[in-house]
């Protein structure tokens, strides 16, 4: 049996041949015991498979089948009317003068103000902290030599005075997120 015969046989069994092709093939089947035997076996395989599945499906109790689905959908919205309204994209709008001023403040002055406030807080804390510690206790105030803004961090740099032998660098996280406001949020 050729590959072409084999393909035709499958298509015949699956009803995928035209009426004319099927008639021609049936005539060939009558004259070819090999082809007819192959058809017989394939038909039995199909029948056994169908019967096996059918027997299994008949043996199953589906009375609580839907309840199982419903339980999984318990948290879902069944009523279309309860579905939240879709979020529509807003048309881009040119920023107002006030918005631009806020953005400029956000980007230019805010880090410096935060840095200065942090420096003042550190100085007050040092003055108040009179308890000795095991790690290089500092006597007297610490003078901040420089304030540097690096992204989201404000760095306070205090160079050692004579005879102190300590360098203090303070890293203060300003914000976890970027300073640029998200769309639709107040920039400040």
């Amino acid at each position: 049996m050729t590959d072409q015969d084999f393909e035709l046989l499958h298509r015949f069994l699956d009803g995928e041949l035209s009426a004319e092709q099927a008639s021609e093939f049936e005539a060939r089947l009558e004259n070819s015991p090999e082809l007819a035997g192959e058809r017989e076996e394939l038909m039995q395989v199909s029948a056994l498979l169908r019967e096996d599945i059918s027997t299994e499906v008949d043996a199953v109790d589906f009375s609580s089948f839907y309840a199982g689905i419903e339980a999984q959908l318990a948290g879902d919205v069944f009523d279309a009317a309860e579905e939240p309204a879709p979020v529509l994209a807003r048309e881009p709008v040119a920023p107002s003068l006030m918005d631009r001023a806020r953005a400029w403040f956000q980007q230019s002055w805010r880090p410096l103000l935060v840095g200065a406030a942090a420096a003042a807080a550190v100085a007050v804390w040092i003055v108040r902290d009179t308890q000795p510690t095991n790690s290089a206790p500092l006597n007297g105030p610490v003078y901040v030599d420089a304030v540097s803004n690096q992204g989201n961090q404000t760095v306070l740099i205090s160079m050692p005075a004579e005879n102190e032998g300590a360098t203090v660098i303070w890293l203060l996280d300003e914000e976890a997120e970027g300073t640029q406001p998200l769309d639709g949020e107040d920039p400040i």
């Binding site: 995928e16 041949l17 076996e41 038909m43 039995q44 199909s46 029948a47 056994l48």
Partner: peptide, 21 residues
């Protein structure tokens, strides 16, 4: 497990063969 010919199941399966019009 297959019978060479004449199986009742094969006959039933044969009834399912359809032809394209």
């Amino acid at each position: 497990y297959l019978e060479a010919s004449g199986s009742e199941y094969a006959k039933r399966a044969g009834a399912g063969v359809r032809k394209k019009s």
